[in-house]
């Protein structure tokens, strides 16, 4: 099991600023395609969302200048990147987030750690490393569905990388070691 760090790493400021000027449309398309791949491999994740399979989630990495709007669409997910703060959590223009959404905000490392089972969501919430707003039921459903899915985003990425799979996995392992961020799922073997 990945060790829970006392302090959660934050994304370096300079690269974060650079993300403020990259074109978001192509990245959103790539992320949507990736999410659809995850949906195909983990259909139970969307079943577990139940009544919240058509909710809208704003995943807000507070150390980045953008937020991610995730629409599960009952198993045909769509991901849209939006800039912060003009697409801010309390109502932005041009189809940005509004009060109907369920918002989960915290450092990127915390959000990735939740996906990979390195952190406990309640512990991060009570320590205020994580903030939730909006539809609390939808947030709970998403948290529980993702926790049960035992996702490994590095493995999912590797599965669509063809011959680049092994170098990519090595690169991710190196980045994980250097940053302390849970970029993949770690699990102890059964003894």
């Amino acid at each position: 099991m990945f060790q829970v760090p006392v302090a959660i790493p934050t994304f370096p400021k300079l690269p974060a600023r650079a993300l403020g000027v990259v074109p978001l449309g192509p990245i959103s398309m790539a992320l949507s395609a990736f999410a659809k791949q995850v949906a195909r491999r983990h259909p139970a994740l969307f079943r577990r969302l139940g009544d919240h399979a058509h909710a809208r989630f704003i995943l807000d990495p507070t150390d980045l200048p953008l937020v991610m709007r995730l629409e599960p669409n009952g198993g045909a997910p769509r991901v849209t990147l939006l800039r912060h703060p003009d697409g801010g959590p309390d109502g932005g223009p041009d189809g940005g987030p509004d009060g109907r959404d369920a918002r989960i905000a915290g450092p990127l490392a915390a959000l990735l750690g939740l996906v990979h089972g390195a952190f406990d969501g309640d512990a991060l919430f009570f320590s205020r490393d994580l903030l939730i707003e909006g539809d609390t039921g939808a947030v709970l459903a998403l948290r529980n569905a993702i926790d049960d899915a035992e996702l490994d985003l590095a493995a999912e990425l590797g599965a669509i990388s063809g011959p680049l799979r092994q170098p990519l996995e090595r690169l991710i392992a190196l980045a994980e070691g250097a940053t302390g961020v849970a970029l993949s799922r770690h699990e102890e073997e059964f003894a």
Binding site: L114, G117, D120, G121, D122
Partner: peptide, 10 residues
């Protein structure tokens, strides 16, 4: 039972 698998394991 409402906590994560990370909590349970630890």
């Amino acid at each position: 039972r409402q906590r994560s698998r990370s909590y349970v394991a630890q």
